[in-house]
Design a protein around this nucleic acid. Sequence first.
DNA 1: TTAATTTTGTCTACTAGGAAACAAATACCG
DNA 2: CGGTATTTGTTTCCTAGTAGACAAAATTAA
Lengths: 164, 164
Amino acid sequence: MNRSASIDTPDQGLGGEGIGKESLKGSLGFLLRVAQLRSFGHFFAVMSEENVRPGEVTVLDLVRENPGIRQGVVSKTLKIKRAQMSKMVREMEAEGLIARRVPREDRRSVELRLTPAGEARIARIATRFPEIEARTGKRLTAAEARELRRLLIKMTGLEDKEGE
Amino acid sequence: MNRSASIDTPDQGLGGEGIGKESLKGSLGFLLRVAQLRSFGHFFAVMSEENVRPGEVTVLDLVRENPGIRQGVVSKTLKIKRAQMSKMVREMEAEGLIARRVPREDRRSVELRLTPAGEARIARIATRFPEIEARTGKRLTAAEARELRRLLIKMTGLEDKEGE
DNA sequence: TTAATTTTGTCTACTAGGAAACAAATACCG
DNA sequence: CGGTATTTGTTTCCTAGTAGACAAAATTAA
């Protein structure tokens, strides 16, 4: 096990699980992290059942809603860096879920569209979105969930500008 | 550049940045993700200035507040998996920031304490926490920030049980 | 006590994601 | 027009984090 720590006499090291005061622990940033992890946990669990990767699903969903969307716009919208998006799109193309097309009017860019297989997959998975949403907000009343959504939108400034 | 996509005629692919309707994009999960990314961005920016890694800082902060805390408790509290915590602690010990000690009464576990160097580092960095917190909540009124905190705590169930 | 189970931490892959350097195409500016 | 700057996507390398198997110690059951 390769434990190099010293073995020593006790020392009132809190035996139980109790935690003392807080500082970062009570910060908004930490709470957001915990909330996001919990929410993602639900999402991930369902996507595992469906044998798909979470990231793929968000891309499929956005491309479905916006056929021909440029790859960079997907990237900005979903807050995924271009490098990562590039990899994902390559894999999804290889899986036959997505089609890339370089438009004549701007040959740097790439337009994305779903293949029929992609359409089928996202359609199947999308039926489970409400379930995930419900699980995420299950401890809140409807009014509270609405207020939480409003505060998050305000906090992030998402109302004003779409892309960063 | 190795572009294998077909080059073809236009096709009303939305040239602008505009996005259509929403589905996952308006979900609570996505909003939480965006909010968390923004918050983490502030945290990360400051930690970069201070030349420390964000993960380390959260551990230092928690150990400072709870000297002798067991590694697994840190892990549960910060929602970091044990494997990752194991690596972080090893590195932080190598950096001389943290001391590990195996208590006699449970020789599986490891108690963590800060070294003087660790104390010094977290003390310096902690002075910047309020700044980060302020930046995270800068678009909200004080009342809204308080309400957001309340809703996140309720949503995650953090009030009841510390662990899990 | 002995045997099975659980807890605790570690190790070895593997995945997701980010940063920086790059190339190609386009936009801007003189 | 010609040259510079910007945008867009890709590639390579690196870090953070996860999953799963494992070992050792402690706990529970028989």
